[in-house]
Structures are given as C-alpha cells and as structure tokens.
C-alpha cells in the first residue's frame, strides 16, 4: 500500500509530497529536453526530444491519424478488447474459484487441469489463438481471458479458504442455509482477496493485449507501437507507450473505485 493513501493526521506532509513529486517530474522533463534538444547529447533516432514527441502526438490525434486511425480510435479499440477479455475472465474465474474454495470435491476435480494449464504463460497461447481465431478481435479476447482467468480463480479460491471458520459457524448457529452462508459470509469475506486478484488480472491483461497486438492487429495501441517501430519513428513509439500506460492507469483507477464501493466496511489502511 502506498503511504500517500493515509489521508488524516499528516498536516502539511501531503501537499509537500505532491510538490516534491511535481518537482521531480519537472526536473526529469528538463533533463530530457537538455539531453535531446538543448545540448544535443543524444541521437534523436535513439531518444526523441519532447517537441518531436509532441509533434507525433499532434499527428496521431488529428486528421488521418497514424497506423490507420487516430490515437483515440486505437485506444478505444484496445480498451474495448481488454474490457471484454477481463469481463469474461471475471465472470468465469471468480465463480470457479469460489466453487473450488467452498467444495473440496470440486477442487479435487478441477485443480489437476488447472495445475496443468497454469504454468503456460498467456503469451505462449498467442500463436495458437491466431491459428484458431485469426488476427481479429476474437483471438485477442481469448488470450486476455486466459491471462486474467488464472489470478481470478486463484485469488477467489484463496479468499474463500481464508474466511474465518468461526464466522461460518456463527452464521450456521443463527439458522443460515448453505446459500445464505455463501452469499452473506463466504463471498464478502473473500472479496478483498478477489480484488487483489482482479488488480493482478488487469495489469496482466494490458501486457497480453499489447503483445498480441504487436504480433498482428488492424487497430489498437500495440499496432501503433508496431508500425512506429517499423517506420523508425521514436516520437510515435513514445506516444504509444504513454497511451498504453494511461489506459492501464485509468482502468486500474476505475477498479480501485469499484473496490472501495464494494469493500466499504474495512478500516482505512
């Protein structure tokens, strides 16, 4: 947990941290400008100057864009693929993890297959996904699903196993049925762990998406990176990298909001 999450009792410390952070970023930008444009220490084909990056950003943001579409179209396309793959993974992985956590029999049945597939990195599935689904969206959603599925299952499973047995006993003594125990005790108890899994899933989903788009795609941020690499256009490469980072950060932020809404009962960390 980052320390800046502490919101109370810090007086001036929080604003000062922000100021220091801004100064660091500003300093780094200045150094970048000096090294590339100001003092010309670096070859612009290796590291472009801030102005070149800005020019690349202007080019891709307007008109014809770059790599077949504007930045917004590429970004939306990538976001949409991640959202689809992630949603399918959540909808399948969490119920499966909950089931395996709750029922030893289900665990005994499913775990061997899971242990067999788990060591295969999601990226290694990309060639097979292309063979099966081609270079279109389906194959990418498929590999993102595989990527996000594993942490979803494992964390839901671990979350269920971590629920205090006394809470389950207490619910039972109050007359709760199995369905009520699962709904009111097991699922909420596993929820913090489930969200930890979702955060991991989401980060991994972006990695996989970029890799899959680098291999071959008609749209998307990975395609921007790929085309810019082939064109030897460093400014555009940096724009693509920054766009991937921004999209990843935005989705992580959204997930954090969802977590605070769902897990609203925990003491502030």
């Amino acid at each position: 947990m980052p320390t800046e999450a502490r919101s109370s009792g810090w007086g001036f410390a929080v604003p000062r941290r922000a100021v220091v952070g801004l100064a660091t970023v500003g300093g780094a930008l200045l150094l970048w400008w000096l090294a590339t444009s100001g003092l010309r220490l670096l070859n612009p084909l290796r590291l472009p100057s801030p102005q070149e990056v800005w020019a690349a950003f202007s080019q891709i943001s307007t008109g014809q864009g770059y790599g077949g579409a504007t930045l917004w179209q590429h970004a939306l396309h990538s976001l949409w693929l991640v959202a689809k793959g992630f949603a399918v993974a959540v909808a399948t992985g969490i119920p499966l993890g909950l089931l395996m956590g709750w029922s030893r029999r289900a665990e005994a049945l499913i775990n061997p297959i899971f242990l067999l597939l788990r060591p295969i990195p999601a990226l290694a599935w990309i060639p097979l996904a292309i063979v099966w689904f081609g270079l279109g969206d389906t194959g990418k959603v498929f590999v993102i699903w595989l990527t996000a599925f594993v942490p979803s299952v494992i964390n839901a499973f671990t979350g269920v196993r971590g629920v205090d047995p006394v809470l389950i006993a207490a619910a039972r003594t109050q007359g709760a049925s199995t369905a009520q125990v699962i709904r009111h005790v097991v699922v909420p108890g596993a929820m913090p762990m489930i969200f930890t899994g979702l955060r991991l899933s989401l980060q991994a989903s972006w990695t996989t998406l970029v890799a899959a788009e680098l291999v071959g795609a008609f749209f998307g941020l990975g395609r921007v990176l790929n085309v810019a690499g082939q064109d030897i256009f460093p400014g555009m490469i940096l724009v693509g990298m920054a766009a991937v980072a921004a999209c990843g950060a935005a989705t992580t932020w959204l997930l954090g909001r969802a977590e605070r809404r769902v897990v609203n009962w925990r003491p502030a960390v």
């Binding site: 205090d164 006394v166 006993a169 009111h184 909420p188 009962w265």
Partner: peptide, 8 residues
C-alpha cells in the same frame, strides 16, 4: 472472538 460479520 465475537464472530460478528465485519461487512455488516
């Protein structure tokens, strides 16, 4: 250990 549900 009281065994209250922390989320309720």
């Amino acid at each position: 250990q009281f065994a209250l549900l922390p989320w309720k």
